[in-house]
Amino acid sequence: MRPLIAATATPEHPMPWGWLLAALALAAVGYAASCAWWPFTRCGRCEGRGRFTRADSKVWRPCRRCKGSGARLRVGRRVWNRFARVRQAGR
C-alpha cells in the first residue's frame, strides 16, 4: 500500500523565487542604464536610413516617423522622460 501524500506537501526542489526576482530586478536596472546611456534606437519604419527611396533610388522623401533622422527615442527613455516631467510639475 502506498503512503498518502498531504495536499500541502512541498516539492523536493522548490522554485527559487528569490533568484528569479533578483534576476528580474537586475534586468530592469540593466535596461534602465541602457536607456540612459543610449536613448535612441534606429527607426523601424525606414530601418534607420531616414528616408524612403523609389525602386530606382533616384527620388527619395524623408521618413515621417523619425523626421529624416533615422533615430527614434526608446520606449524606456520615453517612460523616464514622462516620469521626470510629471515629477518636475509636482514641485
Results as ranks from 00 to 15, higher is better:
Gly68Met: 01
Thr8Trp: 07
Ser69Phe: 10
Arg87Pro: 02
Gly44Glu: 06
Arg54Glu: 15
Arg45Asn: 15
Thr41Ser: 12
Ala36Leu: 15
Ser57Pro: 01
Phe40Ser: 06
Cys43Trp: 04
Trp17Leu: 09
Thr10Leu: 13
Arg85Tyr: 06
Trp80Val: 06
Arg78Pro: 00
Gly44His: 12
Cys35Arg: 01
Trp80His: 06
Phe40Gln: 08
Trp37Ile: 11
Pro3Phe: 08
Gly48Glu: 01
Ala89Tyr: 02
Leu24His: 10
Val59Gln: 15
Arg61Ser: 14
Gln88Glu: 09
Phe52Ala: 04
Met1Gln: 06
Gly18Ser: 06
Cys63Ile: 02
Gly30Glu: 06
Gly90Phe: 07
Met1Lys: 07
Arg72His: 05
His13Gly: 00
Arg2Lys: 12
Pro3Gly: 04
Gln88Ile: 03
Leu20Thr: 10
Arg45Ser: 15
Lys58Ser: 15
Gly76Ala: 00
Asn81Ser: 08
Glu12Cys: 01
Pro39Trp: 08
Val86Pro: 00
Cys46Phe: 01
Pro16Met: 03
Arg61Lys: 15
Cys46Gly: 02
Arg2Ala: 12
Cys35Ala: 15
Gly70Leu: 03
Ala9Gly: 04
Arg51Phe: 15
Ala89Pro: 02
Thr53Cys: 15
Ala33Leu: 14
Asp56Pro: 02
Gly90His: 08
Phe52Arg: 05
Ala36Tyr: 13
Arg87Cys: 11
Glu47Ala: 15
Ala33Val: 09
Ala84Cys: 08
Leu73Thr: 05
Arg54Ala: 15
Ala22Cys: 05
Tyr31Gln: 09
Arg77Leu: 06
Cys43Ser: 01
Val59Ala: 13
Ser34Gly: 11
Met1Val: 12
Tyr31Phe: 08
Arg2Trp: 08
Arg82Ala: 12
Thr53Tyr: 14
